[in-house]
Amino acid sequence: MNSPERPRILLHDPTLRDGHHAVGHQLDTDQLRAYATAANAAKVPVVEVGHGNGLGASSLQIGRARLDDATMLTTVRAALTSSRMGVFMAPGWGTSGDLTAAVRHGADIVRIAAHCTEADVTERHLGVVRDLGAEAQGVLLMSHMAGPGELAEQCALMVEFGAQAVGIMDSAGHYLPADVTERVQAIVAAVDVPVIFHGHNNLGLAVANSLAAVDAGASVIDATARGFGAGAGNTQLEVLVAVLERRGMDTGIGLREILAAADVADDRLMKGPPVTDSIAVVSGLAGVFSGFKRPVLEIARTEGVDPLDLFLALGERQVVAGQEDLIGEVARRLKTTSR
């Protein structure tokens, strides 16, 4: 039985969405089905699926997915008999029509995402999700770019718009545990809905940061199998389940089964688990979106510049997801100034 001090922690698994960044959004139906089946067997509460940047995001600018949204959703929905299915959408990439289609294809939870200072853009779409009868959640991207007070205000605004859970994504893997504690505590004090934390492992702190979020009052934590995700990857799901179990916390996930699901992910989804390499460390320190790793490496090679310098320059420009076209521009400026 859960004690009042140790509430149940709901783990939200975006392996089949955030993991898409690591493979150029090229997972096929067999891969989606295999992991969804394993996660369902482990009783993972929520399995999120889609293009790495969410509904409607497949494009030349940020990468075309192998499968369209409808195919991804129907494939995963058919494999989930106990787990709920989640989707993610950022206004500007996805539309109300995408939301309607996603719910029609069985999405139970819909996350509407916005840059950390722009929660106002979520109002319409959070309302659409509520009208469709799905659970509406709001998340703030690149949250290290705003302080605790502003994040709390932005989250409270999303609750006013109808969000039934709100929280922050450490999109660049920039946080230290103390940063997470300060921000999550401020958000928890400002809202009366569950608080979400989504970590990335650029500085090797994703599990520690997720535990800090739990201790600060977050009750919905994102994590992926083997950490499969953008850049250095996400909080590692099977490790987090084991750590929370050791702390006496209840996730409802079977440890043996989630270890087996992680093996499926390792075998079927990825060439190798994400690593905290030199690029990841610099990306985290610079506060640059983890999903930029692949395009930064490609453009740095083409332009003949050091990818570490390119990440630092992008950090100085405070470039965010959706501004991939600036990577080439910044690289060319670096090339010119280094002559």
Rank of each mutant, 00 (worst) to 15 (best):
Q26N: 12
T276Y: 01
E257W: 13
D222G: 00
D98Y: 10
V305A: 06
R339K: 13
A36P: 07
H51F: 05
A331N: 03
G167N: 00
A70K: 11
E48W: 04
A218R: 08
V139H: 08
D18C: 09
A113N: 09
A286G: 10
A262E: 08
G322K: 06
P295M: 03
E153Y: 07
I221R: 04
A216H: 02
T224K: 05
D18Y: 10
E329T: 13
V76A: 06
R64P: 03
A38V: 06
S83A: 15
L285H: 13
E329V: 15
Q185N: 09
A39Y: 11
T15K: 04
R301D: 15
V241Q: 09
G291W: 07
A90R: 15
E316V: 06
Q185F: 05
S3Y: 08
M142L: 14
G204R: 04
L73F: 12
I168A: 10
T75D: 03
D68M: 08
S219Q: 12
Q164N: 02
A172P: 02
A57I: 00
Q318L: 10
T224W: 08
V139S: 15
M89H: 01
G56N: 10
A134Q: 00
A78P: 05
E324N: 09
T122W: 06
G304S: 13
T100G: 02
R111H: 11
V23M: 12
G287S: 00
E150T: 15
E5S: 14
R268H: 11
V288K: 01
G138A: 03
T251V: 01
Q185S: 15
A280P: 06
H20M: 15
S96N: 14
A225W: 02
V191A: 02
L314N: 07
L55V: 04
T122D: 02
L126M: 03
D277T: 11
A242T: 12
L126Y: 09
Y35E: 13
A232Q: 07
Q323E: 15
L205F: 05
L73C: 00
D120K: 12
M1D: 10
I327Y: 01
V159G: 11
E324Y: 05
D325V: 14
Y175H: 13
P4K: 12
L203D: 12
L11V: 13
L73K: 05
E48M: 04
A57D: 03
I279H: 14
Y35L: 14
H21V: 08
A136W: 09
L205H: 03
G52F: 03
G248D: 04
V275F: 13
R294Q: 05
T74Y: 05
A134D: 03
N202P: 10
V47P: 10
N201Q: 00
E324T: 01
P7L: 02
F161I: 10
L126W: 01
A223E: 03
L32M: 02
A42K: 06
R130G: 01
N209M: 02
T337N: 15
V23T: 13
G229P: 08
A163R: 00
T74E: 08
G304Y: 12
R183P: 03
D68A: 04
V191N: 08
V281S: 07
L55G: 04
L140I: 00
M249C: 14
S83W: 13
R226K: 14
M249N: 12
I279R: 14
